[in-house]
Structures are given as structure tokens and as C-alpha cells.
Design a protein around this nucleic acid. Structure first.
Lengths: 110, 110
DNA sequence: TTATTATATTGCAATATTACGATAAAAGAA
DNA sequence: TTCTTTTATCGTAATATTGCAATATAATAA
């Protein structure tokens, strides 16, 4: 079917999946890393940084934005992108929870 | 084309993307949460916990295993699954890096 | 006004993912 | 041995994703 049965899972599970999925492509990891490297906003040079055509980069940016991982502000002719800390905070909480739970209980068997 | 140009990105970027992608489905988030909740290994009751058919669950488990997020050991008739701390460690490092970089440099503009 | 520049959208082909019924495989029980 | 239980694999249909050329849009410059 190719269609995820989202309605069978909780909203929290779906939100986490959306955030993780948005990072599930090397181009989008590269975008995030670049935004972190140059810090603050990037106005216009993201396309030149990636080995992909402009429409493809635009599409990846849109997915990151829809997921809530980056923000974009119009800045004259260009657009200003930067990390959205709220989205990253949500997914980071999940990994913190995983690690805390793992170190807390130590009766592993595998 | 539907084919990711993995070879255009670094190995580290691809590894992170694979880990994130594996978590990019609510069923797989649910599996991880369940493994954490019951702690240690689960031998046999994962299918009953999810609103999906057995072959579908088996497929999701395989993807988590391939990505390095869970481990599976044969235990008689059943199979014993548990969290793979190594894979989670890798992806958690990325989010730690993101947060550290964000709090360090504070010249945001968005 | 007409360029020019930067980004988004459309349309499409190639490929990947999701889901599940049917079936297979593997191990223990009878 | 046959039966039962548990998990994996195969095959297939429906849908989603990736990538890009072509085009559209929006803002500024000339």
C-alpha cells in the first residue's frame, strides 16, 4: 500500500517520526550541518553548497521547514534560513529519554 | 528518480541519515518506546503490541536492526529483541552537537 | 518599463516504502 | 513423525520519495 497508518499511533509518536524522517536524507543532514557551521542565517548560498540542482535543494529545504527543523524569513531577493530550535528540542528530548532509560535500568540481556 | 544520491555525501552524513530514517515511522518509534518500557529483551510479544499485521511488524523490526538501533537474539522458538545502545549513541551525539552549537553561538537573526 | 537574481512550483520518470496475504522456515511439544 | 508456535520471506498493490528540466514568482536594479 505504501501508505503509513498514522492514525493507529499516538500524536507524539507521529510527531517524532515526522522529525526523524525529515532528517532521514543525507542532503538534509548536510543542510543542517551547514546552517550550524556558518551559524545564524544563510541568505542564498545553500544551493551552491550542495551537489544537487536548485529545485531539489528547494524541496529539501521545504521538508525541513514543514517538519519544524528550520525557519525561513524573506530578506529582499533572498531567503534567510536558520535552525528552528523548537523542533530540535523536541527530538533531542526523545533521545535524552532513551539514554536516561537505558542507563537507569541495567538488566540487559542481549 | 526516487534514488538518493548517497555517494555525493560523506559517510558520516549517510550514517546519520540512515539512523534518522529508521526512526521516521510511527510504528518504529512505538517499537523503541515499547522496548524501553518493558526494558531488556522482548521475546515474542511485539506483534501483539502494534496495530499492524505480523509481516509488517517483522519488516519494521528488520529495518531497525539493519540501521543498528536494535539487536535480535534467537531464543528458542522466539526472538529476543532489545535496544542497541551503540546506534542510539551515534545519533544522540549528533543532537548533542546541534544543541551545543546552538547554545554556544547566539547571534541568531530569525 | 525591462532585465536580473533568487527561490518556489509544476510535471514527470525512476525508485523506494508501506502493508499484508500466502507461504516458508525453525524449534519445541505431543 | 506430525502438530503447533513464532518469526521471516515472497509477491504484489498502493502510495511516497527523489531528482531535475522547465517554468513561475517575487524582489530589486537598470
Amino acid at each position: 500500500m505504501g501508505v503509513t497508518k498514522s492514525e493507529m499511533f499516538t500524536q507524539a509518536q507521529n510527531e517524532l517520526a515526522v522529525l526523524a524522517k525529515a532528517l532521514g536524507h543525507p542532503a538534509r543532514i548536510a543542510i543542517i550541518e551547514y546552517l550550524l557551521k556558518v551559524n545564524a542565517c544563510i541568505c542564498g548560498d545553500i544551493v551552491g553548497e550542495l551537489p544537487l540542482a536548485q529545485p531539489t535543494v528547494s524541496q529539501h529545504l521545504k521538508e525541513l521547514k514543514n517538519a519544524g527543523l528550520i525557519k525561513g524569513n524573506i530578506e529582499g531577493t533572498a531567503i534567510c534560513y536558520c535552525i528552528d530550535e523548537e523542533g530540535f528540542g523536541k527530538i533531542k528530548s526523545f533521545f535524552d529519554y532513551v539514554q536516561n532509560t537505558l542507563t537507569e535500568k541495567k538488566e540487559k540481556c542481549c
